[in-house]
Design a protein around this nucleic acid. Sequence first.
RNA 1: GGCGCAUUCGUCUAGGGGUCCAGGACGCCGCCCUCUCACGGCGGUAACACGGGUUCGAAUCCCGUAUGCGCUACCA
Length: 464
Amino acid sequence: MSVRVRFAPSPTGHLHVGGARTAIFNWLFAKHFNGAFIIRVEDTDQARSTHESEQMVLDDLRWLGLGWDEGPDVSGPHAPYRQSERRTIYGETAAALVAKGVAYRCYCSEEELEAKRKQAEVDGRPPHYDLKCWIDRRDDDAPHAIRFHVPDDGDVTIDDLIRGEVTWRKESLGDFIIVRSDGFPVYNFCVVVDDHDMDITHVIRAEEHLTNTHRQVLIYRAMEWAVPHFAHVSLILGQDRTKLSKRHGATSVSAYAEEGYLPDAMLNYLTLLGWSSPDGLDVFSREYAIQNFSLDRVNAAPAVFDPQKFEWLNGQYIHAMSAAELVPFVRPFFPSLSNTPWLEEGIDVVKTSVHRLTEFAGALLFVLEYAPPAVDRALAEKLAEDLRANGAPTDEASYKAMVERLKISTGLKGKALFMPLRLAMTGLDHGPELVRAIPLLQHASEVDARVLSPLARVEMILAS
RNA sequence: GGCGCAUUCGUCUAGGGGUCCAGGACGCCGCCCUCUCACGGCGGUAACACGGGUUCGAAUCCCGUAUGCGCUACCA
């Protein structure tokens, strides 16, 4: 049987990095085995789920480059892929469970249950359901929930692909609700029904679901369904070692996209958070990750999200890409330059100093903006003279030739020559190497009226 | 409280009884390259949570403690 995995987001906001990593692991696993990757929207919590959120999450997944074979927007053989649209099948399964005598109608009110829980806490007892409706079973249509009965016998063991064997004693678990009194089924029940119905072979999900798994296994057993393989991925933490949240700064995939991170870098970084390449690589392609991914190299310990390493990695991607490849990524961050013909050259000149796409604007500001700096007048005059006589440098050779002439005419060399030259040309005391910057200014000035040419710049100095 | 999971440099990790006085990466520090800022290269700093076992030998296996996290809902 071929591998079928699913990512099951709750549509309650943007995709967060934790969810993104879970999605990535599922995707890599599916691709590695040439299996199917399925998106299932878990929107049984009507109060929190919205359609807009679903769109956002799907958009975030697309941005990451994770394509799916079946899902709410593309349908598939097990449609629908939205839990809110699958109520019939849950109802049927719940009825089957009741018919088998393992689930029952519970007429207790929420208030009643809440009071019992509080009392149990005071008495130091586990807050389990007191079995009232199990002992006194009814089947009338008064408002009721459906509860799954857990006898206090034996235990439940799973062989988690990341954590190994995990065992729970059934007595540590009380009878639990599978269908709410409003008729909506509950997560722990839906997952089982859906994963079975959708022929999911491997359930790869966040660690917070680990302890819920024993409930789910009980339902599989009661329905006599094959239990899938489980793999529980650890949580991603913030720098203070608590679960990553808003106060740690950006946590959603879209926020990182807006901060100038590349989808490939994000995928690479998140993959590295918990998984390690068998070759010890930190930077690798999607293809490499697909080829080499395996659950047994996934770490069971939680991982702290490190913005510095992520930024470094993003820089690695930017540096490795050609300027032409970068242009479409940079454009959205650089509206004033979106149509300038010199953008590609500009990117090429400054990209090694950039770690995020948003930094290109600042790195290229010297092209568009110029305020005449204080520069030695004699040098400025020699420079102006040379530019008038020979034209501005347009490539490495003409730049070097100009530098040689200036060395002679000014008698300066090294830093004493280059720093004033840099200042005169860019208005700044730092920036890309002049051999690239000066030709860029010349080229840009030829095609963009807003850009001052090298000569125009020196003349401004002389005029001031 | 109960149950469960986790614990190697500041961070991500390699390691699955001897090859580890623990390797790589980010960060940090220094040197080199260099007109500057970067990039790149080289080097350095820094860790097996603690305590018991098992074993000739333990980062690796077992038990306990501590700490962190998760679940314990008619949330997912």
